[in-house]
Design a protein around this nucleic acid. Structure first.
Lengths: 340, 340
DNA sequence: TAATTTAATGTAAGCGCTTACATATTAGTA
DNA sequence: TACTAATATGTAAGCGCTTACATTAAATTA
């Protein structure tokens, strides 16, 4: 057994000062004489003292941590944003606490409550659609909150991201311009996923404007996986062999669709075009490489860190709505619609 | 402004009991009369009371959280294990606190210190190789610790995983049996990554036994990315055009290598075989599909949860070393060595 | 030199909970 | 019925910090 963990008091005794001075030395060194600081730091080293986070949090009402909830960590697109978020927070001596909601509002609520109860100074979530209790709970704690990955000029809460309706329209326009008229959509899970839902809304609007009706059986909802992408592709083409363009909810589904096309001997893009969403790393290396939309992950992460830190520092809760651009990246899976 | 957050005391007052009773009602309900419980729960609901984690941690010396540090969250292979770990912990009402070390021992040390200082009841790390201060720091807190993703029968600390030397041998044996004699290796980063290092050791041993020398210029270290896989592949084949088998440190690198081969017009597996490691979801859908080794991610996650919870419950710190099997999955990127 | 600021440190009251111990209540036993 | 054992609740002392306020020492000013 080790000896008991040293406390602030032990350090104070050893350095012959009061606990208050040690505390100051740790939190506001400029308020303590250099000479005293040295004495204290030496005592800290000798004792191997490490502050107790719980006690500190209880006394100061701050934890120097920010909670983040993403739908799933099994997605490199979130991890990229998280990485920059974390880097930003670390610079300011803040720690990131990460959990995932598995695309469920109930789980998300529970996770938020855990985080709040543990104590966090700010919270970052993905999307704007959350369990109503979540906002209540967060408001009770008066901490800044930001919804990532979306942009809504009328949002009641701060958001940093891009306009998914616009993005959905963007990719559809690209296909319309190539002359496509018969569409299929593998949307991914739209339930509890406002991003996917809005992208879908956008593409549907754009098709409507072009005078193209998207019947329900040309749309397939499924969980995001390569396998589901492939299966759904087959389902779509069984129903509508005339489809020439398949819009996928994300890149993973699109990879599956591409595989499905190859299984059927459908040439991409000569016979049929496929689009993804997110721009994951592997896309340029696929054959054919995948047309997609790039999410500004890095900037979302950076801006989120800046925003949260600013709010914490100023003890304010100013709503900011930051729009970033999502960019269409045309590669080899999209081409002119085949002649009839 | 909302009214101030209610405390245990508020609940006690409202329910006309002492704070001790409320506390018991929350932590050991069977010690409180059902009638009183109802009264208390009603008060809790009406006030919207949520326990303060910091206060609870300070008073009880427990946090009901487990810290986990993975090299990077940008890897679906870790996320799968994490998912099952999280599920296991949640069942026992524990929360998972996740951070990443970016493959750096220094960052890992800092993250560990943050976690310890915040308060965690157990810690899970990946691999056995850590900053020496890490073990010291953890020991000081007397909490259970488990190293995931590795198996070492002589390990000083608990570990759950598989034998990477064996895995490295396994994949090499497969290629040797196919008649390959000229090898190249894209190992990925081996620095601060004992798993990659041991896999490399294993494959080298196996080649040695077969009387094949692996010169240094047949081995390339690089960060794990598709692009690096492709670049490294070209470098290898520029140096040694006779190479017929390329062993990659993980699947992502292997995908890059596969791409490199296609760029060079090298047929896989007719002219050259490629192997990966991890068995990520996309592999079966590649063309050709990738031969790899499957990591028992799910079982690692589950077992880690079981182990940690058990140790916390029993207040023990019994060292366990659990070996799981990593399985060779032969697909289309490996075939007989071409005839000279 | 005395009065007034300013800077450095100490004192001590909590932060919101848990828990050992004391006390009150009820059930069980002879 | 009186006594013991078991059960339920209350009392109050911390857990290890931060911080408002008090105190003291040093610097500045008139």
């Amino acid at each position: 057994m080790q000896k008991k963990k040293p406390t602030l008091q032990d350090v104070a005794t050893k350095a012959n000062v009061s606990t208050a001075t040690v505390s100051r030395c740790l939190n506001a060194p400029d308020k303590v004489r250099t000479e005293v600081q040295q004495k204290i730091n030496q005592a800290i080293d000798e004792l191997g003292y490490v502050p107790d986070g719980a006690a500190r949090a209880l006394a100061s009402r701050r934890t120097n941590t920010v909670g983040v909830i993403v739908p799933t960590i099994d997605n490199s697109i979130f991890s990229k944003a998280l990485q920059y978020l974390q880097t930003g927070l670390n610079k300011a001596n803040y720690t990131l606490l990460l959990t995932n909601n598995s695309f469920s509002e109930e789980i998300e609520l529970r996770e938020v409550q855990t985080l709040l109860s543990r104590g966090i100074d700010g919270i970052v979530m993905v999307g704007a659609q959350h369990h109503p209790e979540i906002y209540k709970a967060i408001n009770r704690y008066q901490i800044p909150i930001v919804n990532l990955w979306i942009y809504d000029p009328d949002s009641e809460y701060s958001c940093i991201g891009f306009d998914h309706i616009k993005a959905g329209k963007q990719i559809t326009t690209h296909l319309l311009e190539l002359g496509h008229e018969s569409f299929g959509v593998i949307s991914g899970t739209r339930e509890n996923n406002d991003r996917a839902e809005e992208r879908f809304k956008g593409l549907k609007q754009q098709l409507d404007e072009a005078g193209i009706t998207l019947e329900d059986d040309r749309v397939i909802d499924c969980r995001f996986s390569v396998e589901n992408g492939s299966k759904s592709f087959h389902k779509l083409l069984d129903r509508h062999p005339d489809i020439t363009a398949v819009i996928c909810g994300n890149d993973v589904l699109a990879i599956g669709a591409l595989h499905g096309a190859q299984e059927r001997g459908i040439r991409v893009p000569e016979d049929l075009s496929i689009t993804g969403f997110d721009n994951i790393e592997i896309l340029p290396f696929l054959k054919p490489s995948l047309t997609t939309i790039n999410s500004p992950s890095r900037r979302m992460g950076e801006k989120a860190a800046d925003y949260i830190l600013q709010q914490i520092k100023d003890k304010t809760n100013i709503i900011e709505r930051i729009e970033l651009e999502a960019e269409l990246i045309v590669r080899e899976t999209t081409g002119p619609a085949p002649k009839r």
